[in-house]
Every structure is written in structure tokens, then in C-alpha cells.
Design a protein around this nucleic acid. Structure first.
Length: 137
DNA sequence: AGCCTTTGACCAGCG
DNA sequence: TCGCTGGTCAAAGGC
């Protein structure tokens, strides 16, 4: 890994994601698949591995938008301990937002506000202090 | 029929 | 130079 410094603590989100996740587990395709909380973007899972270094599973997601190179990594030791790490920036607004109106106004594809929001939530709170996983069960 | 998710294998980088 | 870990791609299965 070359950008480990991005692994900021997402305890704040984890709390929200935790409950959302549990709900989605039932609404998700009717299966027991581990789903990620909707963060306003459409993600496509392209891989999953168990990282022994942290003793947790890591899922690899990519933004479904062809013109978007944003990526997301989800780490979890259990469904209750989910950590989301965003990487890269979106070239569009979140799907849940009315970005269509923004486009009409001629807003550039660089939604800095979005990436800033994501990074602020994850990396802005804490500088790279995640020396080790701290999922307290 | 199409799309999404899951699992395995392969490749690259670092120690 | 070899081994290990992390990341990505491809194929198969299911809804």
C-alpha cells in the first residue's frame, strides 16, 4: 500500500453505517450479502480479500460512472465493525443529489465539494493515526 | 437477458 | 533472489 495515510478513523460513520447496513441486509437483493451503506454514489465491487495484517476483510469498490475514477475500500472484521476508506475523487455529484440541476448551470465535473466532504469525514478528522485497527467488539 | 456479487488466480511492489 | 501481501481482473452463479 502506498497511501495508507488515508486510513482515517471512521468511528463516526461506522455508527451510522452500522445501523443502515443492518437494514440493507434485508433489503439487499433478498440475500445475506454484506452491503455497503449508501453514501450517495453508485459503487461496483470488483474484489474482496482478507488482510491478515489487520485481521479484517477488505472489499474493493469502484464508482460505476465510467468517467469517474473514484474508488472505495471497505474494511470489516464483522458486520458491526465496518470502516470505509474513500480514494480518489468523483468527477460527478452524488447520485442521490440533484446534480442534474448543477450540470444545467454549467458546473464543472470536478465536484470538489463532494471529495472534500468525503475526505473531511474520513481523513480530515484524524491525520494518519490508524497505526493499527481499533475495532473494539 | 442483463446486471451485480462472489471467489480464485495472476501480477506488481516491497522487505 | 525469494517470499509475502495487497490490488485488480476475469469467470461463474444467482436474482
Amino acid at each position: 500500500m502506498s497511501e495508507v495515510s488515508q486510513t482515517g478513523e471512521t468511528s463516526m460513520e461506522t455508527t451510522e453505517e452500522d445501523k443502515e447496513e443492518q437494514q440493507q441486509q434485508h433489503t439487499d437483493r433478498g440475500r445475506r450479502r454484506l452491503v455497503l451503506p449508501e453514501d450517495g454514489f453508485e459503487w461496483k465491487k470488483y474484489g474482496q480479500k482478507f488482510i491478515k495484517n489487520i485481521g479484517k476483510f477488505r472489499g474493493y469498490f469502484r464508482c460505476q460512472k465510467r468517467n469517474c475514477m473514484a474508488k472505495k475500500r471497505a474494511e470489516w472484521s464483522s458486520p458491526e465493525n465496518l470502516r470505509i476508506v474513500y480514494e480518489g475523487s468523483h468527477s460527478h455529484a452524488s447520485s442521490t443529489q440533484d446534480y442534474s440541476s448543477a450540470s444545467s448551470q454549467g458546473t464543472p465535473p470536478s465536484s470538489a465539494a463532494n471529495q472534500y466532504n468525503l475526505y473531511t469525514q474520513l481523513f480530515g478528522n484524524q491525520p494518519a493515526s490508524s497505526t493499527h485497527d481499533q475495532d473494539h467488539t
